[in-house]
């Protein structure tokens, strides 16, 4: 179980995160949505041990997170592959704690799972954006982390590649069952993937609302209930299309 306890973060006088309380069950998929500047990425970085909270703590199975840990895998918006290492060596990079002899077969298996077995020996520069991101996912998963954190993992990809990778991620989740916490600005993506969607708002970053999405997977994107949730979340973020009187703030 992953517990975020009264976590706040200030950057030089600016409150990026208010007090965040969130508990995520083992194997649960939680999507965090919010407009830019709501602190969702900062929260993810704190859970990943890349930032220290100004107050509060993150506790994973009773142990306080105080830095990057092998039980926690991270996928960023960009693939962040080492350009001088082959795709396979990039995946092996995540296996520094494993005995030397195990690294190569594990990396090859992880690449085969994301459909990159054929390009294991090429350099990252030869990969398309979607392939590179799949390689990054393979690197994050190869050490079988208990928690997988994803920071807008598909936002730099085109829609077709994005849908493919979302399905792919669900396949991986079905077999490995990692706890997944992902940040996105794509509400639909959050609704299609998550057991729970957390809506954050800015100044300071805080949790505004949470929705449990108890629909069976795979979920069609056009599902009426998903669209209804999407409307609600857009309203939460003040982004819903106003059909009645204009908002006084914007009235001339």
């Amino acid at each position: 179980m992953l517990q975020i306890r009264r976590v706040s973060k200030r950057f030089e006088g600016f409150a990026a995160l208010g007090e965040i309380d969130l508990a995520v069950d083992r194997g649960e998929i939680t999507g965090i949505v919010g407009t830019s500047g709501c602190g969702k990425s900062t929260l993810l970085r704190i859970v990943g041990g890349l930032e220290t909270p100004s107050s509060g703590s993150v506790v994973l199975d009773g142990v306080t997170v105080a830095g990057p840990r092998p039980e926690v895998g991270l996928v960023f918006q960009e693939p962040r592959l080492m350009p001088w290492l082959s795709v396979r060596e990039n995946v092996e990079f995540a296996l520094a704690r494993h005995p030397r002899g195990q690294r190569r077969p594990l990396a090859e298996a992880a690449l085969a799972r994301v459909g990159l077995g054929a390009v294991a020996e090429v350099l990252p520069q030869a990969l398309s954006g979607g392939m590179a991101q799949r390689a990054a996912i393979a690197r994050a998963l190869v050490a079988r982390p208990q928690v997988l954190l994803l920071d807008e993992p598909f936002s730099a990809l085109d829609a077709f590649t994005r849908f493919g990778l979302q399905d792919h991620l669900l396949d991986i989740w079905r077999t490995d069952r990692p706890t997944m916490l992902f940040v996105t600005h794509d509400i639909e993506e959050a609704l299609v993937l998550s057991d729970r969607v957390v809506v954050m708002r800015a100044r300071p970053g805080r949790i505004h609302a949470q929705y449990r999405i108890d629909l069976p997977r795979p979920r069609p994107r056009t599902e009426a209930r998903l669209q209804a949730w999407k409307e609600r979340i857009l309203e939460d973020l003040d982004l819903a299309v106003k059909t009645d009187a204009p908002d006084p703030e914007f009235a001339i």
């Binding site: 990943g48 041990g49 890349l50 990057p68 092998p70 991270l74 962040r80 080492m82 990079f93």
Partner: peptide, 9 residues
């Protein structure tokens, strides 16, 4: 890239 390295210990 340095951050990726830090994550992996």
């Amino acid at each position: 890239l340095v951050e990726v390295a830090r994550i992996h210990g």
